[in-house]
Design a protein around this nucleic acid. Sequence first.
DNA 1: CTTCCATTTCAATGATTCTTGAAATATATA
DNA 2: TATATATTTCAAGAATCATTGAAATGGAAG
Lengths: 104, 104
Amino acid sequence: MKEEQVIEAFGALSNQTRLQVLRKLVEAGPEGMLAGDVAEALGASPSRMSFHLSTLQAAGIVTSERQSRQMIYRVNFQAIGEVMRFLLQDCCKGNATVQSCCGP
Amino acid sequence: MKEEQVIEAFGALSNQTRLQVLRKLVEAGPEGMLAGDVAEALGASPSRMSFHLSTLQAAGIVTSERQSRQMIYRVNFQAIGEVMRFLLQDCCKGNATVQSCCGP
DNA sequence: CTTCCATTTCAATGATTCTTGAAATATATA
DNA sequence: TATATATTTCAAGAATCATTGAAATGGAAG
């Protein structure tokens, strides 16, 4: 993964609303969630939610798919793993203390 | 680790200069690096580097110690691990694909 | 074809972040 | 005490980000 993309991902993750969106989409599982349902679940206006979902998608953290006239959003676990791998391997040279985050 | 602190950490990591600083400090190892040396290594002015080092420190990603009239900065691997753990466990509920970032 | 519904786009505004250079602070040394 | 060195703090300005509500878009259904 490229540094520029990782920086964008960290930027996307550095916001409370977007972290809440991420958790909702993780809960939702592989089926994903409609944009409007995410907005309602978090008490945000459609346009505000659209802004945050777009930010997450631009960063690669979620994907979107049109279903008739609504939009389904899903978490991209792959991308999140790659961001973490970059931080651990590229930035921290595989440091054991950092790596222990995945441990018991 | 608290969400607020994690958000601050992601914000700190979402900047090219600060990612470069992080790599330099990782290279430097446990001895750490003087603020002025980091600035010189990256071709940044003292005040600009002070700003970025302060941002990293406020986020917990680096620590600082005064040595006579200079400042030593060191990476806080523990904190980075906790940020990653938060993303994996709290946000992604331990998702296996994300977890594989630490794998082979 | 018109209307409705879900979502996005847009423009305006306020808030936050980054950079720059000057001034202030802290510490060492003559 | 005076002076030099390392770093931080401050103020100003530019750039980016977030929120709001109105308008535009894409698609379904009457």
